[in-house]
Amino acid sequence: MNVTEKKWQDWPTHQVITPKRIFFILVAFILLSISAHNTEIDKAAVDTSKAFLSAVGMGDSQVLDGAVRFVSKAFPIQISERTEISRIEGLDRADLPWFAYVEIGELREYDALDEKWTIEQTEYLVEPLGYLKKVIIKMWETIEMGFWGTLISVMISLPLGVLATKNYAPHRLVYTGARFWLSFHRAMPELIIALFLVLMYGFGPVAGVLALAIHTSGVLGKFFADEIENAPNGPQLALKSAGTSSLKVLRYAVLPHVLPAWIAYVQYIFERNIRTATVLGIVGAGGIGMELKGRWDLFDYDHVSTILLVIFITVLILEFGSQKLRTKTL
Protein backbone atom coordinates (compact mmCIF):
# COMPACT_ATOMS: atom_id res chain seq x y z
CA MET A 1 0.00 0.00 0.00
CA ASN A 2 2.82 2.42 0.80
CA VAL A 3 3.86 3.15 -2.73
CA THR A 4 4.41 6.85 -2.27
CA GLU A 5 6.21 6.58 1.07
CA LYS A 6 9.66 8.15 0.96
CA LYS A 7 12.62 7.58 3.17
CA TRP A 8 12.76 10.28 5.87
CA GLN A 9 15.93 11.73 4.38
CA ASP A 10 13.92 12.61 1.30
CA TRP A 11 11.01 14.30 3.09
CA PRO A 12 10.46 17.86 1.76
CA THR A 13 12.24 20.56 3.78
CA HIS A 14 10.66 23.91 4.52
CA GLN A 15 11.68 26.50 1.89
CA VAL A 16 11.87 30.16 2.82
CA ILE A 17 12.63 31.61 -0.60
CA THR A 18 10.21 30.34 -3.21
CA PRO A 19 9.46 31.71 -6.67
CA LYS A 20 5.93 32.44 -5.55
CA ARG A 21 7.09 34.61 -2.67
CA ILE A 22 9.62 36.46 -4.84
CA PHE A 23 6.85 37.19 -7.32
CA PHE A 24 4.53 38.53 -4.62
CA ILE A 25 7.21 40.76 -3.13
CA LEU A 26 8.03 42.14 -6.59
CA VAL A 27 4.38 42.91 -7.36
CA ALA A 28 3.90 44.55 -3.99
CA PHE A 29 7.01 46.66 -4.55
CA ILE A 30 5.81 47.87 -7.95
CA LEU A 31 2.31 48.73 -6.68
CA LEU A 32 3.73 50.60 -3.70
CA SER A 33 6.14 52.55 -5.93
CA ILE A 34 3.34 53.68 -8.22
CA SER A 35 1.21 54.72 -5.26
CA ALA A 36 4.12 56.51 -3.60
CA HIS A 37 4.75 58.48 -6.75
CA ASN A 38 1.08 59.46 -6.98
CA THR A 39 1.16 60.83 -3.46
CA GLU A 40 4.53 62.57 -3.99
CA ILE A 41 6.29 60.52 -1.36
CA ASP A 42 9.41 60.71 -3.54
CA LYS A 43 9.19 64.50 -3.71
CA ALA A 44 8.80 64.59 0.07
CA ALA A 45 11.96 62.54 0.50
CA VAL A 46 13.98 64.68 -1.93
CA ASP A 47 12.76 68.04 -0.62
CA THR A 48 13.22 67.08 3.01
CA SER A 49 16.79 65.94 2.37
CA LYS A 50 17.43 69.21 0.54
CA ALA A 51 16.08 71.10 3.55
CA PHE A 52 18.49 69.32 5.87
CA LEU A 53 21.42 69.96 3.53
CA SER A 54 20.45 73.61 3.21
CA ALA A 55 20.23 73.89 6.98
CA VAL A 56 23.91 72.97 7.25
CA GLY A 57 24.75 75.43 4.48
CA MET A 58 24.67 73.35 1.33
CA GLY A 59 22.44 74.60 -1.47
CA ASP A 60 18.94 76.10 -1.45
CA SER A 61 15.71 74.59 -0.25
CA GLN A 62 12.18 75.65 -0.97
CA VAL A 63 10.95 73.84 2.14
CA LEU A 64 13.40 75.58 4.43
CA ASP A 65 12.64 78.97 2.84
CA GLY A 66 8.96 78.47 3.55
CA ALA A 67 9.59 77.54 7.13
CA VAL A 68 11.96 80.49 7.62
CA ARG A 69 9.48 82.90 6.03
CA PHE A 70 6.88 81.81 8.60
CA VAL A 71 9.11 81.56 11.64
CA SER A 72 10.86 84.89 11.04
CA LYS A 73 7.52 86.69 11.14
CA ALA A 74 5.84 84.43 13.69
CA PHE A 75 7.98 85.44 16.64
CA PRO A 76 7.54 87.32 18.81
CA ILE A 77 3.88 86.41 18.89
CA GLN A 78 1.43 89.30 18.65
CA ILE A 79 -0.89 89.70 21.59
CA SER A 80 -1.63 93.40 21.40
CA GLU A 81 -4.22 95.16 19.27
CA ARG A 82 -3.53 98.45 17.40
CA THR A 83 -6.44 100.43 16.07
CA GLU A 84 -6.40 103.78 14.29
CA ILE A 85 -8.04 106.26 16.58
CA SER A 86 -9.77 107.96 13.67
CA ARG A 87 -11.70 104.75 13.11
CA ILE A 88 -12.98 104.46 16.66
CA GLU A 89 -16.18 106.31 17.21
CA GLY A 90 -16.82 108.19 20.43
CA LEU A 91 -13.52 107.37 22.09
CA ASP A 92 -13.20 109.09 25.46
CA ARG A 93 -9.53 109.90 25.82
CA ALA A 94 -9.89 110.51 29.53
CA ASP A 95 -11.34 107.03 30.05
CA LEU A 96 -9.39 104.55 27.94
CA PRO A 97 -9.92 100.78 28.27
CA TRP A 98 -7.75 98.90 30.75
CA PHE A 99 -3.97 99.24 30.19
CA ALA A 100 -4.59 100.90 26.84
CA TYR A 101 -2.49 103.83 25.65
CA VAL A 102 -2.25 106.10 22.60
CA GLU A 103 0.72 105.89 20.29
CA ILE A 104 1.78 107.97 17.29
CA GLY A 105 2.62 105.84 14.31
CA GLU A 106 3.01 105.89 10.56
CA LEU A 107 0.23 104.88 8.24
CA ARG A 108 1.51 103.81 4.84
CA GLU A 109 -0.98 103.90 2.02
CA TYR A 110 -0.55 103.30 -1.68
CA ASP A 111 -2.10 105.99 -3.79
CA ALA A 112 -3.09 104.39 -7.06
CA LEU A 113 -3.63 107.71 -8.86
CA ASP A 114 -0.18 109.13 -8.16
CA GLU A 115 1.38 105.70 -8.10
CA LYS A 116 3.16 106.66 -4.91
CA TRP A 117 3.29 105.51 -1.29
CA THR A 118 1.95 108.18 1.06
CA ILE A 119 3.11 108.19 4.63
CA GLU A 120 0.98 109.88 7.23
CA GLN A 121 1.35 110.37 10.96
CA THR A 122 -1.66 108.98 12.82
CA GLU A 123 -2.61 108.13 16.34
CA TYR A 124 -3.17 104.53 17.34
CA LEU A 125 -4.94 103.12 20.32
CA VAL A 126 -2.86 100.23 21.63
CA GLU A 127 -4.40 97.58 23.89
CA PRO A 128 -1.50 95.46 25.12
CA LEU A 129 -3.54 92.28 25.58
CA GLY A 130 -6.26 93.18 23.11
CA TYR A 131 -5.48 90.58 20.49
CA LEU A 132 -5.01 87.78 22.97
CA LYS A 133 -8.38 88.68 24.45
CA LYS A 134 -9.97 88.60 21.01
CA VAL A 135 -8.45 85.18 20.26
CA ILE A 136 -9.57 83.77 23.60
CA ILE A 137 -13.11 85.01 22.97
CA LYS A 138 -13.00 83.34 19.54
CA MET A 139 -11.66 80.16 21.11
CA TRP A 140 -14.52 80.19 23.61
CA GLU A 141 -16.93 80.53 20.71
CA THR A 142 -15.24 77.49 19.17
CA ILE A 143 -15.71 75.49 22.37
CA GLU A 144 -19.36 76.52 22.44
CA MET A 145 -19.70 75.34 18.84
CA GLY A 146 -18.29 71.98 19.89
CA PHE A 147 -20.70 71.84 22.82
CA TRP A 148 -23.83 72.60 20.80
CA GLY A 149 -22.67 70.40 17.96
CA THR A 150 -22.40 67.53 20.42
CA LEU A 151 -25.71 68.28 22.15
CA ILE A 152 -27.66 68.43 18.90
CA SER A 153 -25.83 65.35 17.71
CA VAL A 154 -26.97 63.43 20.79
CA MET A 155 -30.53 64.61 20.26
CA ILE A 156 -30.47 63.32 16.68
CA SER A 157 -28.60 60.11 17.36
CA LEU A 158 -30.52 58.88 20.42
CA PRO A 159 -33.83 58.21 18.67
CA LEU A 160 -32.09 57.13 15.47
CA GLY A 161 -29.79 54.85 17.46
CA VAL A 162 -32.74 53.10 19.11
CA LEU A 163 -34.46 52.65 15.74
CA ALA A 164 -31.22 51.23 14.35
CA THR A 165 -31.27 48.21 16.66
CA LYS A 166 -32.63 44.83 15.60
CA ASN A 167 -34.41 44.27 18.92
CA TYR A 168 -36.11 47.65 19.35
CA ALA A 169 -36.91 48.79 15.81
CA PRO A 170 -40.65 48.49 15.21
CA HIS A 171 -39.98 46.92 11.82
CA ARG A 172 -37.06 45.53 9.87
CA LEU A 173 -37.49 48.26 7.27
CA VAL A 174 -37.20 50.93 9.94
CA TYR A 175 -34.04 49.24 11.18
CA THR A 176 -32.48 49.18 7.74
CA GLY A 177 -33.60 52.74 7.08
CA ALA A 178 -32.12 54.05 10.33
CA ARG A 179 -28.84 52.22 9.79
CA PHE A 180 -28.62 53.62 6.29
CA TRP A 181 -29.46 57.12 7.46
CA LEU A 182 -26.74 56.95 10.09
CA SER A 183 -24.10 55.78 7.65
CA PHE A 184 -25.15 58.60 5.35
CA HIS A 185 -24.46 61.10 8.15
CA ARG A 186 -21.15 59.42 8.90
CA ALA A 187 -20.07 59.37 5.29
CA MET A 188 -20.15 63.17 4.89
CA PRO A 189 -17.07 64.91 6.31
CA GLU A 190 -17.76 68.01 8.40
CA LEU A 191 -15.88 70.36 6.09
CA ILE A 192 -18.00 69.37 3.12
CA ILE A 193 -21.27 69.67 5.06
CA ALA A 194 -20.06 73.04 6.34
CA LEU A 195 -19.42 74.24 2.76
CA PHE A 196 -23.04 73.54 1.88
CA LEU A 197 -24.42 74.98 5.09
CA VAL A 198 -22.45 78.21 4.65
CA LEU A 199 -24.20 78.51 1.33
CA MET A 200 -27.57 78.03 3.03
CA TYR A 201 -27.17 79.80 6.39
CA GLY A 202 -24.40 82.25 5.53
CA PHE A 203 -21.04 82.74 7.26
CA GLY A 204 -21.00 82.09 10.98
CA PRO A 205 -21.16 79.45 13.69
CA VAL A 206 -24.63 78.07 12.73
CA ALA A 207 -23.15 76.29 9.75
CA GLY A 208 -20.33 74.88 11.86
CA VAL A 209 -22.55 73.69 14.68
CA LEU A 210 -24.95 71.94 12.31
CA ALA A 211 -22.10 70.40 10.32
CA LEU A 212 -20.63 68.93 13.50
CA ALA A 213 -24.05 67.72 14.65
CA ILE A 214 -24.85 66.02 11.36
CA HIS A 215 -21.55 64.22 10.96
CA THR A 216 -21.09 63.07 14.55
CA SER A 217 -24.71 61.97 14.97
CA GLY A 218 -23.87 59.28 12.43
CA VAL A 219 -20.94 58.14 14.53
CA LEU A 220 -22.78 58.34 17.86
CA GLY A 221 -25.98 56.73 16.56
CA LYS A 222 -24.14 53.66 15.35
CA PHE A 223 -22.32 53.42 18.64
CA PHE A 224 -25.54 53.79 20.68
CA ALA A 225 -27.23 51.13 18.56
CA ASP A 226 -24.37 48.65 18.85
CA GLU A 227 -24.25 49.07 22.61
CA ILE A 228 -28.00 48.45 22.92
CA GLU A 229 -27.76 45.34 20.77
CA ASN A 230 -24.92 44.00 22.89
CA ALA A 231 -26.64 44.58 26.24
CA PRO A 232 -27.27 41.34 28.14
CA ASN A 233 -30.62 39.84 27.19
CA GLY A 234 -31.60 38.30 30.53
CA PRO A 235 -32.80 41.40 32.39
CA GLN A 236 -34.64 42.56 29.26
CA LEU A 237 -36.40 39.20 28.97
CA ALA A 238 -37.32 39.29 32.66
CA LEU A 239 -39.08 42.64 32.32
CA LYS A 240 -40.61 41.86 28.94
CA SER A 241 -42.07 38.55 30.09
CA ALA A 242 -43.80 40.40 32.93
CA GLY A 243 -45.65 42.44 30.30
CA THR A 244 -43.48 45.58 30.29
CA SER A 245 -43.53 47.69 27.13
CA SER A 246 -40.37 48.03 25.03
CA LEU A 247 -39.61 51.64 25.93
CA LYS A 248 -39.73 50.90 29.63
CA VAL A 249 -37.57 47.82 29.16
CA LEU A 250 -35.12 50.06 27.32
CA ARG A 251 -35.15 52.53 30.18
CA TYR A 252 -34.74 50.01 32.99
CA ALA A 253 -32.89 46.98 31.64
CA VAL A 254 -30.74 48.58 28.92
CA LEU A 255 -29.98 52.17 29.89
CA PRO A 256 -28.27 51.44 33.24
CA HIS A 257 -26.05 48.96 31.44
CA VAL A 258 -25.02 51.13 28.49
CA LEU A 259 -24.88 54.54 30.18
CA PRO A 260 -21.22 54.55 31.30
CA ALA A 261 -20.02 53.62 27.83
CA TRP A 262 -22.35 56.20 26.26
CA ILE A 263 -21.06 58.96 28.51
CA ALA A 264 -17.45 58.11 27.72
CA TYR A 265 -18.17 58.16 24.03
CA VAL A 266 -20.12 61.41 24.05
CA GLN A 267 -17.23 62.96 25.95
CA TYR A 268 -14.81 61.77 23.32
CA ILE A 269 -17.04 63.19 20.56
CA PHE A 270 -17.26 66.53 22.40
CA GLU A 271 -13.48 66.74 22.56
CA ARG A 272 -13.17 65.80 18.92
CA ASN A 273 -15.83 68.34 17.93
CA ILE A 274 -13.90 71.17 19.54
CA ARG A 275 -10.78 70.16 17.64
CA THR A 276 -12.74 69.99 14.41
CA ALA A 277 -14.49 73.29 15.14
CA THR A 278 -11.11 75.04 15.08
CA VAL A 279 -10.72 74.28 11.38
CA LEU A 280 -14.34 74.73 10.28
CA GLY A 281 -13.79 78.50 10.20
CA ILE A 282 -11.55 78.03 7.18
CA VAL A 283 -14.67 77.55 5.07
CA GLY A 284 -16.42 80.35 6.94
CA ALA A 285 -18.39 78.25 9.39
CA GLY A 286 -17.52 80.23 12.51
CA GLY A 287 -15.05 79.81 15.31
CA ILE A 288 -11.38 80.59 15.62
CA GLY A 289 -10.62 79.13 12.19
CA MET A 290 -12.13 82.20 10.53
CA GLU A 291 -9.70 84.47 12.31
CA LEU A 292 -6.86 82.09 11.50
CA LYS A 293 -7.69 82.04 7.80
CA GLY A 294 -8.01 85.83 7.67
CA ARG A 295 -4.65 86.41 9.32
CA TRP A 296 -3.01 83.71 7.24
CA ASP A 297 -4.13 85.34 4.02
CA LEU A 298 -2.70 88.70 5.21
CA PHE A 299 0.63 87.01 6.04
CA ASP A 300 0.20 88.13 9.66
CA TYR A 301 2.13 85.15 10.95
CA ASP A 302 2.74 86.72 14.35
CA HIS A 303 -1.04 86.77 14.87
CA VAL A 304 -1.29 83.25 13.48
CA SER A 305 1.17 81.96 16.05
CA THR A 306 -0.91 83.49 18.86
CA ILE A 307 -3.95 81.64 17.55
CA LEU A 308 -2.05 78.37 17.23
CA LEU A 309 -0.73 78.71 20.76
CA VAL A 310 -4.22 79.30 22.17
CA ILE A 311 -5.61 76.29 20.26
CA PHE A 312 -2.76 74.14 21.45
CA ILE A 313 -3.18 75.08 25.10
CA THR A 314 -6.96 74.64 24.92
CA VAL A 315 -6.67 71.14 23.47
CA LEU A 316 -4.16 70.19 26.13
CA ILE A 317 -6.43 71.46 28.92
CA LEU A 318 -9.41 69.64 27.42
CA GLU A 319 -7.56 66.37 27.16
CA PHE A 320 -6.31 66.63 30.70
CA GLY A 321 -9.76 67.57 32.01
CA SER A 322 -11.59 64.80 30.23
CA GLN A 323 -9.10 62.23 31.45
CA LYS A 324 -9.85 63.36 34.99
CA LEU A 325 -13.58 63.11 34.31
CA ARG A 326 -13.27 59.68 32.78
CA THR A 327 -11.50 58.20 35.77
CA LYS A 328 -14.27 59.66 37.90
CA THR A 329 -17.29 58.34 35.96
CA LEU A 330 -16.05 54.82 35.22
Binding site: G234, P235, L237, A238, Y252, A253, P256, H257, L259
Partner: peptide, 9 residues
Protein backbone atom coordinates in the same frame (compact mmCIF):
# COMPACT_ATOMS: atom_id res chain seq x y z
CA UNK B 1 -35.87 33.14 36.50
CA UNK B 2 -33.31 30.39 36.71
CA UNK B 3 -30.54 33.00 36.20
CA UNK B 4 -32.48 35.62 38.22
CA UNK B 5 -31.99 38.30 35.55
CA UNK B 6 -31.88 41.18 37.99
CA UNK B 7 -30.63 44.47 36.56
CA UNK B 8 -27.07 44.64 37.88
CA UNK B 9 -26.47 48.39 37.90
Amino acid sequence: HQQLHLIPR
